[in-house]
Design a protein around this nucleic acid. Structure first.
Lengths: 205, 205
DNA sequence: CGAGTCGTTGAACGGAATCAATCGTCGTGG
DNA sequence: CCACGACGATTGATTCCGTTCAACGACTCG
């Protein structure tokens, strides 16, 4: 785990929460490779994180011993913010693809939270909008037709930014295999319903 | 829209946020029938809600004129908490099945929020855990096998409480048609992997 | 230079959706 | 108060489309 603060911390895409935290606390840079664990279920919560690059799977061991994947975090996701209010991590975080993260000390965040009601309110708003976003994602996955699901996703997000997330990641996010996602994108492009550049996928009309 | 405060407000299942709000603010009881709108996209936000019974679909009209379903709220869901921090509702809420709700005045909630940092923190924790829950639901929907998906859901929730939610509702929640859900439940029961009572579905072992 | 991953395309299969029909129950309005 | 409509739960048959497996080129990173 490297502990320098390299320039990539500053080169990240903007995120309201991380922007605010970076301004007031000292971010810690973390690099991990596939197979590493960011944290393990049961450990006491010391940090919360923001994932800049890579893929991290959160899974929990149930009482019966089975493992359940709770979430697959992709670039742009925050990790363990829920654990800000618990003593221990309720799941393990295993690195799937070489990851770069920013970490903030839980104690410092909580302290800042207490000192600034305004920040607290901002955090509330962020979480609320995260709930909204997740609900839409959830709803989209109830659309059986791959094509319609993709269209619904683009309509909600207005566009798909493919600079930060790979097509494969997006496919996963909306619950399609990457194969069908590629195929349907192609179809939509051919039928003139979407346009693709190397940074954006947009609806036509 | 009835505006009395009937006893069902007190008979609801417990919910940390609603419990707290009910204690400090005056809840408003609302009954709506199928086809009614709880609120419409663009209206200014006056209330936030808690759904006791029924089903309410949140949908948004996009710029292109298409309608996208953002969320289908079921009994136990909060509605429009995200709008606590916006001026207008960003979607419309249409009643699908006769609904009973509790409403709280936005202004009163915000005022209470300002007066009590402790409540604010509590709200933060609730939203954070909601994020966690939604992420798991999302993840579950990436499991293709109906049977495995159901098992994963029960593992995460520990059990399925079928007193408040119909089987149909649960099927929808995890992204299955009610037909397959019934069928797979039956199979799981027959093969001795789950047990069903009229209030609970549990894993065996 | 080689390993690994992403993007892409092809072929075949399987399982969940879909359509349809039935039963029981609950609420309700005439 | 009862008949009717609506909806949940259930089962059957069929279809279809997304998954799965497989293979390949391009590119990146070490």
């Amino acid at each position: 785990m490297s502990e320098t603060s390299p320039e990539y911390i500053l080169e990240r895409m903007s995120h309201p929460l991380i922007d605010e935290l970076s301004e007031h606390l000292t971010p810690r840079a973390i690099s991990l490779k596939k197979g590493d664990f960011l944290f393990q279920q049961g450990q006491s919560v010391k940090y919360i994180y923001y994932l800049l690059q890579g893929r991290i799977t959160l899974n929990r061991s149930t009482i019966e011993g089975a493992k359940v994947i709770l979430h697959v975090a992709l670039a742009g996701d925050t990790l363990a913010e829920a654990s800000l209010f618990s003593e221990q991590y309720h799941c393990s975080a295993k690195v799937d693809a070489t990851a770069k993260l920013i970490g903030f000390k839980k104690s410092e965040v909580l302290q800042y939270l207490d000192s600034s009601p305004q920040f607290m309110k901002q955090l509330l708003a962020i979480l609320a909008s995260q709930v909204r976003e997740l609900r839409s994602l959830n709803e989209i996955k109830n659309i059986r037709s791959a094509q319609e699901r993709i269209l619904a996703y683009i309509r909600i997000e207005n566009r798909i930014n493919i600079e930060n997330l790979s097509l494969k990641d997006i496919a996963y996010k909306i619950g399609l295999t990457h194969e069908t996602f590629y195929r349907e994108l192609r179809k939509l492009e051919k039928s003139g319903q979407i346009s693709r550049s190397d940074s954006m996928i947009k609806l036509i009309i």
